[in-house]
Simulated assay, not measured.
Amino acid sequence: MEADSDVPPLVVDIDGTLTDRHRAIDPRVFPVLREWPDRVVIATGKAMPFPIALCEFLGIERAVVAENGGVVFVEATDTLRLEGDKEAAIRVADEYREAGHDLGFGRIDLANRWRETEVVVNIDQPLAPLERIATERGLRVLDTGFAYHVVDPSVDKGRGLETICSELDRTPAEFIAVGDSENDAELFDVAGESVAVANADEMALSRADRVTDASYADGFLEAVAPYRG
């Protein structure tokens, strides 16, 4: 579809932004994403198969920032980039277990099964020892409200969007970004317009250009309403 010059490209988070509080995607967002007249980028803390599947089933071009910027895929240029120290994250997880804790996702652990650059821990597990071990390894812990992500400090969603833009001859300043968590803060810093949904955490709220009155997917729909006619 030819881009409408009055509608910017869109970069959007999934959990807490396109979903309800239980992480179920609100079907009302589907036509918005499918019919958006410019490029759509999905930027998430989830492993790459999840945003790729979302794009696939929506029938939109696959341009994704996954694992909080550690994984970037651009279908248009057949580009896949992996950044960050996965081995260091695994060592953090091993030490966390040795200290008597658990990642909290059960024996199969679908949350970590397909991750390429980071490790996640269930939000029900103790945070303080995880942060201590990660800091000792030169990593940081992101609290997305749904999980604790052990990540390399050299990666974030903002840099992921910059990577996508370098592949597509665009600039981050062209984009409107919508999100809800501290892992969206750097994305908000580089986007031309940033919107936090009302359920966003304090960091995301403080870095956003505007905040919606509504929460979760209702907030997303409110955020993009000015561009939908």
Rank of each mutant, 00 (worst) to 15 (best):
D15E: 13
P129G: 02
V121P: 04
E193Y: 04
A173Y: 12
E75S: 12
V65H: 06
A53H: 09
T77C: 11
T163V: 13
I176R: 06
D209I: 06
G158P: 02
I25Q: 10
D152Y: 01
D169A: 12
S154L: 06
I14W: 06
E136T: 04
L10K: 15
K157C: 09
P9H: 12
V211K: 06
A217E: 00
G100P: 08
M1C: 08
K157Y: 10
K46P: 02
I60A: 09
L205Q: 03
A214T: 01
I25F: 10
T144S: 05
D78G: 08
R97Q: 13
A63P: 05
E222F: 00
L139M: 11
A24D: 15
D4V: 12
L139H: 02
R91S: 10
G179E: 08
V40P: 02
G160M: 00
F188R: 03
V65T: 11
V11G: 05
T44V: 05
E98W: 14
C165K: 01
R62C: 14
A111R: 10
D143W: 09
R107D: 13
R97V: 15
E136M: 05
V12A: 13
R107V: 14
K46C: 04
H22G: 06
I25A: 09
V65P: 02
H149W: 09
D143Y: 08
D20A: 13
E67N: 04
L80Q: 07
A93V: 15
D6R: 15
V197A: 01
R39Y: 03
T19Q: 13
D218A: 00
V120D: 01
D102G: 06
L58A: 05
D38Y: 08
R62H: 14
A208Q: 02
A76S: 15
D4A: 12
R21G: 10
R28S: 13
F188T: 02
C165V: 09
G138M: 11
I108E: 15
R81E: 11
E222S: 01
N199E: 00
D169S: 12
Q125W: 04
T19L: 14
Y227L: 03
A204G: 00
R210H: 02
L168K: 02
A24I: 15
I108N: 14
N112Q: 12
V92Y: 11
G229M: 11
I164G: 00
P49C: 07
A53S: 07
G100C: 11
V11W: 06
I133N: 00
S206W: 03
L205C: 02
V195I: 10
V29K: 08
F57Q: 14
I25C: 10
L139F: 08
D143K: 11
R28D: 14
T79W: 09
E167N: 11
P226C: 04
N112E: 08
S181N: 05
A43N: 04
R228S: 03
Y216F: 03
G138L: 12
